[in-house]
């Protein structure tokens, strides 16, 4: 998994690239959580993530819940069809902020 973080005004965008599984969840958290903790609105761009398993879904849930605790929000952008399918299988499409 690789990543890029961009900032524009009060929005930080985390672009993830690759497959998100148990092997990379800690790395994903290390990238995403500090951005959430900064208090900015976080956009998680998943357009280059073609595979995500239950561990990756857990990162999305944790990020969402962490953002609520910090009075900000995580918006998940440009989800690929394959990842959206997994999010929907987990019945999270109404819980997570998807755009």
């Amino acid at each position: 998994m690789s990543y890029k973080v961009t900032e524009e005004g009060n929005i930080s965008t985390v672009h993830l690239d690759g497959e998100i599984d148990m092997d990379v969840t800690e790395k994903a958290k290390e990238v995403i959580f500090p951005v959430i903790d900064s208090g900015k609105e976080v956009h998680l761009n998943l357009s280059q993530v073609q595979y995500m398993d239950s561990s990756g879904i857990s990162v999305l849930i944790e990020s969402h819940q962490r953002a609520l605790e910090k009075n900000t929000k995580v918006i998940i952008k440009d989800v690929s069809k394959s990842v959206l399918k997994v999010i929907m299988m987990a019945k999270l499409e109404q819980i997570l902020n998807l755009e």
Partner: peptide, 10 residues
């Protein structure tokens, strides 16, 4: 809704 416990569900 909480992290974990989804693998077996899938």
């Amino acid at each position: 809704v909480k992290p974990g416990g989804l693998g077996t569900f899938f």
